[in-house]
Lab assay of single mutants.
Amino acid sequence: TTIEWNGTKITVDNPQKAKELAKKIAKKLGLTVKVHGNTITIE
């Protein structure tokens, strides 16, 4: 699972952990999480 935001890509083996990490990042930055299959985008 890949997390993408602002040109940065982070690959996380565990999809559940990836989703939790994305939510934490999005919350800190005041952004939203969008899931597209194996890609999680923070916008």
Results as ranks from 00 to 15, higher is better:
residue 1 T to Y: 13
residue 1 T to C: 14
residue 1 T to H: 09
residue 1 T to L: 10
residue 2 T to L: 10
residue 2 T to R: 05
residue 2 T to D: 06
residue 2 T to P: 06
residue 3 I to G: 07
residue 4 E to H: 13
residue 4 E to D: 08
residue 5 W to P: 02
residue 6 N to T: 09
residue 6 N to E: 07
residue 6 N to F: 15
residue 7 G to V: 10
residue 8 T to D: 05
residue 8 T to E: 06
residue 9 K to D: 02
residue 9 K to H: 08
residue 9 K to I: 12
residue 9 K to S: 10
residue 10 I to Y: 08
residue 10 I to R: 01
residue 11 T to F: 14
residue 11 T to E: 07
residue 11 T to C: 14
residue 11 T to G: 02
residue 11 T to W: 15
residue 12 V to F: 13
residue 12 V to G: 01
residue 13 D to P: 10
residue 13 D to W: 15
residue 14 N to Y: 04
residue 14 N to Q: 03
residue 14 N to D: 13
residue 15 P to I: 11
residue 15 P to S: 06
residue 16 Q to T: 11
residue 16 Q to P: 02
residue 17 K to M: 11
residue 17 K to S: 06
residue 17 K to I: 11
residue 18 A to I: 04
residue 18 A to K: 00
residue 19 K to A: 10
residue 20 E to F: 14
residue 20 E to W: 15
residue 20 E to D: 08
residue 20 E to Q: 14
residue 21 L to K: 02
residue 21 L to Q: 02
residue 21 L to G: 00
residue 21 L to V: 05
residue 21 L to I: 11
residue 21 L to C: 09
residue 22 A to Y: 02
residue 22 A to M: 03
residue 22 A to S: 02
residue 23 K to V: 11
residue 23 K to F: 14
residue 24 K to E: 08
residue 24 K to C: 15
residue 24 K to P: 00
residue 24 K to D: 04
residue 25 I to T: 01
residue 25 I to N: 00
residue 25 I to C: 09
residue 25 I to E: 00
residue 26 A to C: 05
residue 26 A to P: 00
residue 26 A to S: 06
residue 26 A to E: 03
residue 26 A to I: 04
residue 27 K to I: 09
residue 27 K to N: 09
residue 27 K to L: 13
residue 28 K to C: 12
residue 28 K to A: 12
residue 28 K to E: 10
residue 28 K to I: 12
residue 28 K to R: 14
residue 28 K to N: 07
residue 29 L to N: 05
residue 29 L to D: 02
residue 29 L to F: 15
residue 29 L to M: 08
residue 29 L to C: 13
residue 30 G to Q: 04
residue 30 G to A: 03
residue 31 L to V: 08
residue 32 T to W: 04
residue 32 T to K: 12
residue 33 V to I: 13
residue 33 V to R: 00
residue 33 V to A: 05
residue 33 V to D: 00
residue 34 K to P: 00
residue 35 V to F: 12
residue 35 V to G: 01
residue 35 V to E: 05
residue 36 H to R: 12
residue 36 H to T: 11
residue 36 H to Y: 10
residue 36 H to Q: 12
residue 36 H to K: 11
residue 36 H to W: 09
residue 36 H to M: 11
residue 37 G to N: 06
residue 37 G to P: 02
residue 37 G to C: 06
residue 37 G to L: 06
residue 38 N to A: 07
residue 38 N to V: 05
residue 38 N to P: 03
residue 38 N to E: 03
residue 38 N to F: 07
residue 38 N to S: 10
residue 38 N to T: 08
residue 38 N to R: 06
residue 39 T to C: 09
residue 39 T to W: 07
residue 39 T to L: 09
residue 39 T to M: 09
residue 40 I to K: 00
residue 40 I to G: 01
residue 41 T to M: 11
residue 42 I to T: 01
residue 42 I to R: 00
residue 42 I to N: 00
residue 42 I to A: 01
residue 43 E to T: 13
residue 43 E to M: 14
residue 43 E to H: 10
residue 43 E to N: 08
residue 43 E to G: 13
